[in-house]
Amino acid sequence: MKINKVFRKPKYIVLQQNALRPDEKASQNEGPAIPNGLWIKCQDCGATIYNKDLLKSNGVCTVCGRHFRLSAADRIELIMDTGTFREINDRLSTLNPLDFPGYEEKILSYQNDSGIHEAVITGYGKIYGNNTVIAVMDSKFLMGSMGSVVGEKITRAIEFAGVKKLPLIIFTASGGARMQEGIYSLMQMAKTSAAIAKFSQNGGLYISVLTDPTTGGVTASFAMLGDLILAEPGALIGFAGQRVIEQTIRQQLPEGFQKAEFLLEHGFIDKIVPRNSMKTTLSRIIRLHQ
């Protein structure tokens, strides 16, 4: 398999969530002009956080601990040892098998804005010296939805880990299957699940890390098939949305339903790991299973 050059981090930051874009101008009636994009409001505690402070804390609210969403590039930089990550299958391109109107233009727009080709980045590198294959989904690329290329890249990463006899870590962040690709998208659930089953039968270690949000077909396939399933605090995890479920069963769901803490309490995941402890935790797990 041909290995591509060292992964280069795209020039964008996902932590601008809830912040004004730098090119946005304040209204003349709003008083003195203040540079936009400097402050971010936490949706949980309402605190106004200086953007640079949020970056220093790796996207964790310094007041309440809310975990903001990270781009795939930022997460790779946080988890992998500096200079060790090599990306694989980075040039796979999405087609338009159903001739869905405007789909090709939408994909091109996301590629230009994000600097990545699809909603997942796959590759290998070291975590505190431990060789590891990693796949990281990006919720800012069409909500991390799983189309045929996302499924193919994840499947190839699983197979690569099997051939190299390396542990596999997948960070999930997805709205589910990609509707623009219909059945081609849904088929990825079976394909990735079959690849994971073969990987496990051959003794491979697979760690699934659920981040906000992990929903739909991704939850119903490889996200919940890990030998160990970890999650970030407060991550939304589920299949269908809460309102859809309530309308279907005509019952009020418990408070905090589909949050990582609720799933841990009910045995669906193994451990909730804060972001700033994730690299250390993953390293320890890998060493224990070597």
Rank of each mutant, 00 (worst) to 15 (best):
G59K: 02
C61H: 08
V60Q: 09
H67F: 04
N51F: 11
N58M: 10
C45P: 08
A47G: 06
S71E: 07
H67E: 14
A73H: 15
I49V: 15
L55S: 11
S57T: 12
G59Q: 01
S71V: 06
H67V: 08
K52S: 09
A72D: 03
V60N: 09
W39I: 15
G46A: 01
I40K: 03
A47F: 01
W39K: 12
D44L: 14
N58G: 06
I49N: 02
D53W: 09
S57W: 00
C64M: 03
H67N: 14
K56S: 12
L54I: 09
I40W: 00
L54P: 02
A47H: 03
L55C: 10
V60P: 05
L70T: 07
C64H: 05
N51E: 12
D74E: 15
S71W: 06
V60F: 05
L54Q: 00
C45R: 04
K41N: 08
I49D: 00
L54A: 00
R69W: 00
C45E: 05
N58H: 13
T48M: 12
L54S: 01
G65K: 07
W39A: 04
D53P: 04
L55V: 14
R69D: 08
H67Y: 06
A72T: 01
S71G: 15
F68N: 14
C42L: 08
V63A: 03
W39L: 10
C45V: 03
C61A: 12
G65V: 07
D74G: 08
G59F: 02
D44M: 11
K56R: 15
A47W: 01
W39R: 10
K41Y: 03
F68K: 07
V63C: 01
L70A: 07
T48F: 14
C42K: 05
T62L: 03
W39H: 05
T48P: 00
G46H: 00
D53M: 12
C64G: 06
K56A: 13
R66K: 13
T62K: 06
A47Q: 04
K52Q: 13
C45A: 05
K52R: 12
D44G: 04
L55W: 07
L55F: 12
R66T: 15
I40C: 02
K41L: 05
L70V: 05
W39Q: 05
K52M: 09
A73L: 03
K56G: 03
D44A: 11
Y50L: 13
A73E: 08
T48S: 10
C61T: 12
Y50N: 09
N58I: 07
C42R: 04
L54K: 01
T48Q: 09
T48A: 10
